[in-house]
Amino acid sequence: MTTLEWANELRRSGRGERIESLPYAVMLGVIADHDGSDFKLIMPYRESLIGSPGRLHGGAIAGLLELAALSTLVLALPEDEPLPEIKPVTVTVDFMREGGMRDTFAAATITRLGRRIANLRAVAWQYDYSRPIAAANLNIVLARAAT
């Protein structure tokens, strides 16, 4: 499966159920949230996410943020156009609070969606969205087939 095939499936399924078909997402245990109107991902607590005693590994949180941004982007691309290849080029993560041994949530917003570049912001939280544990800024290249 390529990025494009996955993105097409994700778009068809509409609400990100297909996140569960991605091996790295499965390794993290990430699932899409089907409740409410906003799209978000959940990374339920599991022991394999631990990086130091009592704390989630920052890399697992970064992975969750990136998955949230990619799925949000795919779902926002115009449906009447062929999907471009989606390539994150720069990803910056700020770690604000330690991730405790509990479920983590992540959602992303698109700051700007251009023809060639998309800029996204993703936020991860545990107790409350207003108390983020980490946030990511992602600049993503959209490579479109020549027409």
Partner: peptide, 10 residues
């Protein structure tokens, strides 16, 4: 996955 590379680098 890029996310795994991020975790390796962290």
């Amino acid at each position: 996955a890029n996310g795994a590379i991020f975790a390796l680098m962290d």
